[in-house]
Design a protein around this nucleic acid. Structure first.
Lengths: 199, 199
DNA sequence: CACGGCCGATGAACAGTGATAAGTTATCAC
DNA sequence: GTGATAACTTATCACTGTTCATCGGCCGTG
């Protein structure tokens, strides 16, 4: 006897998403979700193998959102070329700052907190990295170099965002400036250097 | 009647440290620590206001360890100058990869997971940043620019480390290479640019 | 010596967590 | 109507951080 007309699974997911966004992933508990949805905690296990699976569904959602956000920014930036990497990076940062709790579960949760899932699924979708890499190097560059450059830009970007979200940055350093610096630095340096071994 | 001769507080701290290092901060539980130490869980609250305070003591320890590690590397690198930033960054990365669980609580735990403590204490010690900044710019640079450049280098470094520790990096991208790239890129670009506003 | 007072430590308890197993109930096929 | 099947709940387990009342040994005072 479903208490509400709709299927339970999407409603559980929606409530989990709502709790994640509004109160952070620490507020995600099976009983809390169940109470809010109008069922009992064990019902969740009918649709998700465990709590990690539920969180992981949100992570997947987050990646889809991020990808859509970046592709929109990419399309918009295509009009005036030359600065498309900067636009992509800005879009990435915007997403992170607008959805800090999504960003948290997407990129900070390690195997310890979110176990029982193949590591492969953690890795960011190649599509996003390709987008960044090609924006930086152009479509001519080889896939390996593209991936490497994209990862470099991404990691620089992520560093600034991660520290900012964790409140680890000195008050006198302004966040947006740091982000802009991080992007510019990574982009310009990544464009120059080919696979230059440093050791 | 202390069951063992020594004071309880340092032994609690030592056991917490051991558990953090060997099993990760998810294994830190008051009862577990108490059992391992030979007392009961409420005894911990005689010496720490709550579990967060205990974790925070470990965070402070971590910062002291990191600082000592970097200062040692700095002293060692003073012999052959010119490459001291790279040496510092390498030392930072070594610390992170050698003590991933320390690094986790030091830099990934946000106010949500580790509440009830003033945000100020989260911010990395200025001493560490000054070390990096002066290694990059020399002692002549102004304190503001030094801090800003150090933060930029640090955040680039942290990005690569954070993604690496969270297993978010594509298998085909080799970790040490990415780290080296991140350092080099941040250093060379940070050296060039003065306070160049990007907007 | 006896008597409080104090302080470290404890046992019991509370509300909450993820998770499982057994039981209930409603719907559908035959 | 009967049986099966799926959805859902109740009860429970082991665990979490935390609090409170209590106990016991020690110390200074009379």
């Amino acid at each position: 006897m479903p208490r509400s007309a709709t299927d339970l699974k999407p409603r559980i997911l929606a409530e989990a998403r709502r709790l994640l966004v509004t109160e952070g992933h620490g507020a995600l508990s099976t009983r809390r979700i169940a109470r809010e949805v109008g069922c009992t905690a064990p019902s969740i296990y009918l649709y998700f193998a465990n709590k990690d699976a539920l969180v992981h569904a949100l992570v997947d959602e987050g990646f889809q959102l991020l990808r859509a956000h970046l592709e929109a920014a990419h399309a918009e930036a295509a009009a005036r070329p030359g600065r498309s990497v900067e636009a992509l990076c800005q879009a990435y940062a915007d997403f992170a700052l607008a959805n800090p709790e999504y960003y948290e579960v997407m990129f900070h949760l390690g195997p310890a907190e979110l176990s029982r899932y193949p590591k492969e699924r953690y890795r960011v979708q190649r599509a996003v990295l390709d987008l960044i890499g090609r924006a930086a190097l152009g479509p001519g560059a080889g896939p390996e170099r593209t991936l490497r450059t994209a990862t470099l830009i991404w990691s620089s970007l992520h560093g600034a965002i991660s520290l900012h979200l964790a409140h680890r940055i000195d008050k006198s350093v302004r966040g947006p400036e740091l982000l802009a610096d991080a992007v510019r630095v990574a982009v310009q340096a990544a464009r120059l250097e080919p696979t230059l071994r440093t050791e």
